[in-house]
Simulated assay, not measured.
Amino acid sequence: MRFKDVFSIIGPSMIGPSSSHTAGAARLGRIARRILGDAPEEAEIVFFGSFASTYSGHGTDLAIVAGLLDCDTDDPRIRDSLSIADSAGMKVDLRTSQKPAPHPNTAEILLKKGDRAVRITGCSIGGGNIEIINVNGFDVKFSADYPTLLIFHDDRRGMIADVTDVLRHADANIGYMEVDRKSRSGDALTVIETDQAIDAAFLTQIRGLPNVRRICIIDLTGKEEGK
């Protein structure tokens, strides 16, 4: 992780006390919500490492749940997020684990709504910055610092070329791309970060591509969620 300026170290505008344990945690929750595509009915949150030791005192639990409610890092509702979630009918289960984790500030978040479920693993790496390192069993890595497109699809020849051709016509510059698959010709996930938001018409084209099962948009500056 390369810090671009002093604000990358001290963190964003936020409800404290910690950019890593609260601001970063809120971002993890918001990203998990975006991947699910809506407010969850059930949330299971497992804390690892430093998160597991200090989550209550540092408000990490409040921050992640606030993110699930789509609160930004400086939203005063963070302080009351657990009661707000309870009032909204969101069932929250908080747990800790002593298993080794890739980073001291790691959380695994399982969200459910109806017949849809997503599981993500993410790390708060300092200054409010985060990394998602696993989505539904796919080993991918992204920061969501830029508009991010998640494409769940079948592993088929020409799939990536078809997607990038749509983005080329959308005049979208790809800053980062990563692909993982469960098996050859099996389930796959492509993650693409772009320099600008992608117009809805082009997203519709990607949804309509053969072998695309679902796409999800993560843009924490906007309100659109995955569908």
Rank of each mutant, 00 (worst) to 15 (best):
E131S: 04
S185Q: 14
G114Q: 06
A107T: 07
V140I: 07
I133V: 05
K91M: 11
G137A: 01
D139W: 05
S97W: 06
D187I: 08
T54S: 14
D61E: 15
Q205S: 12
A25Y: 04
A85D: 00
L36W: 02
S18T: 08
T121A: 05
A25P: 02
A26M: 05
D171Y: 14
D80E: 15
I9V: 15
L110V: 13
M177E: 10
V92G: 02
F51T: 07
H21A: 14
L111G: 01
S87P: 04
D165F: 09
R33A: 05
G127Y: 02
R213F: 10
G114N: 10
S8E: 09
I31K: 00
A170Y: 12
A197K: 15
T22N: 04
A39Y: 15
T121P: 00
Y55K: 08
G57R: 15
L111A: 01
I84K: 04
R27A: 06
A170G: 09
S53E: 13
V163E: 06
L189C: 07
T96C: 07
A43M: 00
G29T: 02
F142D: 04
I133P: 02
A188S: 14
L167N: 14
D199A: 15
I206D: 06
K182N: 07
G158Y: 11
G208Q: 12
F51W: 07
L110T: 13
I78E: 07
E178T: 09
G158R: 15
H153Q: 12
R2H: 13
I120C: 02
K99H: 10
S81C: 01
G67T: 05
T221K: 15
V140Y: 01
R95T: 01
T73E: 10
E178P: 00
D199T: 13
L28S: 05
F3Q: 06
I160N: 07
P76L: 07
I78L: 14
D93E: 10
R116T: 05
T221N: 15
D154Q: 08
P76F: 07
D74P: 02
D154P: 05
F142Y: 11
D165A: 10
A144K: 03
A172L: 11
H103I: 05
S19P: 15
E42H: 13
D180V: 04
G126I: 02
E41H: 06
A23N: 01
R213K: 12
N134S: 13
R156L: 09
P102V: 00
G137K: 01
H103M: 10
A161R: 14
L203E: 09
G11I: 03
V163P: 10
A200N: 13
R27N: 04
T190S: 08
P210F: 05
G114M: 08
N136R: 05
R181S: 08
I15C: 04
G186W: 04
I84A: 08
H103Q: 11
D195N: 08
